[in-house]
Design a binder for these strands. Structure first.
Lengths: 258, 258
DNA sequence: GAGTGGTCTAGACCACATT
DNA sequence: ATGTGGTCTAGACCACTCT
């Protein structure tokens, strides 16, 4: 990476800088390598630190850089492909997944979830209590997602009363798994990590995340709703039959067809 | 929205500001309403303009605000749910979708696409020419996605030679549609809009997008690859059977379960 | 021309991880 | 204690839209 000056251009400096850095990343850096610090880089390119940071932010958003306070900026590995069903043991509680249960409370569902339950569930009221299970999904030793799973009480009628807190979430998941899953539908959208999610994902609040909302249909009605929050910087969500097709490259410049 | 001063807090100012503004948006603003300009807002909350902008950026990322240079900041409508199959006429070229073809060239596929074709296609070489069709997807009168569709030549052997440029893409899509679609798999990841994509989507370069990569399998091999770029601010991708379930709310604060 | 959001600067200080 | 990225400031100017 030379001591290049930025030539005059129509495009914003930070955008040009992004391109220059992206090329340097491809040709001169290995995964895991640490970049010079922001002050040095800014000086090297003759821009203010804020401008350099704007370029780094872009590259981090694209999953090509990883920045850690107190440590430095490193070249990120390719994104992890995480299967998001349908397929395999997708019904929560199925055996060999990588979810780790964190806790469980009973509370009314937040408005967004309540309205989802409302549509697909005769007789459900927004103030009804639901089992709310928080889980964390690990992959390659890192946390990639946190999930809140909302299970209306009468979806799991066989649940024993008065369970100790540690047994409670396991029991809910087991009862859930006994039901027959008919279908599921999902939405994916961009969001930013709330404080609790951010902590579980080892990121700062506001970090970009992919929010996956799943409705599980069983017995002709919505049996459960899951809101999963995936780290957008490190994850690539995979859908469909093929599952684990490995793609080991970054999304690169595409050709215009016009 | 009062002339509130920010009280001292541990969390960063911009994050607290985001929360305050989000609440104001819920309670005091209607969709489409314009906010005060950034300089006024910053003064009102007693912060620098850059800090206020950081908060606005968050809210824009979450699809709650829309900012247009020279115009102002307005309250965004709920995100549009766009079906992303599998289901319905999903094979490109199927009848009643909302894609508009922009152009078509023949060129070698970019590296990322080439490696996808490589895996699922005996005898394919990275330098082989592919038909590259650019399309734009409209929804509710707005552009929501642009796509580059890569079709290896021998996927469409029946294609006549020497077509006029306008007829070319149509012919490719028609030939493609005659093949039997066996399966498809997808990945979704976060990206930032390249210059050409940004223009089609009426956004600035670097705008956050959801990149949907689809492999279409036909005749036991990958018949085509599509890379679609969806506006992350205005779109919610929907998967699965149910298709058009309308959700008319924003993702709101969720309860901790730990 | 007036008003908006977008870019950029040159500083300062803070929170955090490492030594 | 040092060095890193994260936050924040108070300005300036630019690009764009609208009247």
């Amino acid at each position: 990476m030379g001591t290049t000056q930025l030539e005059a251009a129509q495009e914003p400096k930070y955008w040009h800088l992004r391109t220059v850095l992206a090329e340097a990343l491809d040709s001169e850096f290995a995964v895991g390598e640490v970049l010079p610090n922001e002050r040095d880089l800014a000086a090297r390119f003759g821009v203010a630190r804020a401008t350099l940071r704007q370029a780094l932010e872009q590259l981090e958003l694209e999953g090509r850089l990883q920045r850690r306070r107190g440590v430095g900026t490193t070249v990120a590995p390719p994104r992890i492909g995480v299967p998001v069903g349908p397929a395999e043991g997708d019904w929560p509680g199925a055996g060999n997944d990588t979810w780790r249960t964190i806790g469980c409370v009973e509370a009314p569902a937040p408005a967004a979830v309540a309205s989802l339950l409302n549509e697909g569930r005769p007789g459900y009221r927004a103030t009804d209590m639901v089992h709310t299970i928080r889980r964390v999904r690990m992959s390659h030793g890192q946390p990639v997602a946190t999930e809140l799973l909302y299970v209306p009480r009468d979806s799991v009628p066989g649940l024993p009363e008065l369970l100790p807190p540690t047994a409670h979430p396991r029991a809910v998941l087991r009862e859930l798994h006994r039901l027959e899953l008919e279908s599921e539908d999902r939405t994916v959208e961009l969001g930013s990590a709330r404080a609790e999610d951010a902590k579980q994902l080892e990121r700062l609040p506001g970090a970009p995340v992919l929010v996956v909302t799943t409705r599980y249909v069983t017995g002709g009605r919505v049996g459960a709703v899951a809101v999963a929050t995936y780290r957008a910087d490190t994850c690539r969500l995979t859908f469909g039959d093929t599952g684990a097709v490995e793609i080991t490259h970054h999304d690169d410049e595409r050709r215009q067809a016009s």
